[in-house]
Nucleic acid binder design. Structure first.
Lengths: 136, 136
DNA sequence: TATGGGGTTTCCCATGATGGGAAGGTCAAG
DNA sequence: CTTGACCTTCCCATCATGGGAAACCCCATA
């Protein structure tokens, strides 16, 4: 099948499929006489694997490692789990960080009248913060 | 004061101060005869404001809008609050998304033995997902 | 006064993952 | 054979930041 169909069946854009090939994440596709890339079922599986890993927040380099583990039938599941657990920690740390920002902002917003008057503790806070905010 | 001191006092790198100037986020600094940028207390306030906005996850364009609101003493606090609330929603949506990834992964990892054996439901799941995963 | 070390300037390049778009070749249906 | 949808490569853009080179400047100390 052509790249368009591979894209439709995997949710990976044609642009990205070519890019993944260019960085060696996937093997170069075979070509027709007219240089069209040709994909088989195996490639679809690989692309879906990548798509899934990306959806779960793995970087392309992490995805590369996961692909290698996937293909290495002799690796221990502990290797995979270690990688996954580290990633979970990263994700949760980032989530907590974003939530902390939201909380801080929500706190500030709670004290903002939100009416026609100009006074706004949100901006005052922004302007006043001396670098390492204790009060937060 | 020179850019180095301004950087140290605001937590904004010299590189970024120059960049902010180049994109018009801050006004061009005045210069010494030798073309060294010179900063005053007001600039320090502005840079701290920017730093704080960035720390709270506002993009530079959003920060630009906040700066404009900050300087516009006639604006209504409602304008600020609206912007802040929208940003809070964004932050919380992103936090939830990351947490959802972590949860999914944690669920998969819970079923992975994590020992010397090769079988691993994490990778199996990655390989099997047919695009719109219902089971997740 | 000369020298050296540290600050500053501008400029270019890199990141990570993705999209946009141009210019040209190809395929299949009518 | 034409038309439109596909494919190819190549370059550029994003967002915010850092790295580094080459040149210049400033000040203190020898």
């Amino acid at each position: 099948m052509n790249i368009g169909e591979a894209s439709a069946r995997t949710g990976v854009s044609a642009k990205m499929i070519r890019y993944y090939e260019s960085i060696g994440l996937i093997a170069p596709a075979s070509r027709t006489a007219a240089q069209y890339r040709v994909y088989a079922e195996d490639d679809i599986h690989t692309l879906r694997f990548i798509r899934r890993a990306r959806d779960l927040g793995f970087s392309l380099e992490e995805t590369r490692a996961l692909l290698a583990l996937w293909r290495d039938r002799s690796r221990a599941s502990a290797d995979v789990k270690t990688l996954a657990m580290a990633h979970i920690r990263d994700l949760e740390a980032k989530a907590a960080e974003l939530q902390a920002m939201a909380d801080t902002l929500r706190h500030l917003a709670a004290h903002c009248h939100g009416d026609h008057r100009p006074d706004c503790p949100i901006l005052s806070d922004f302007a006043a913060q001396p670098l390492l905010a204790e009060k937060a």
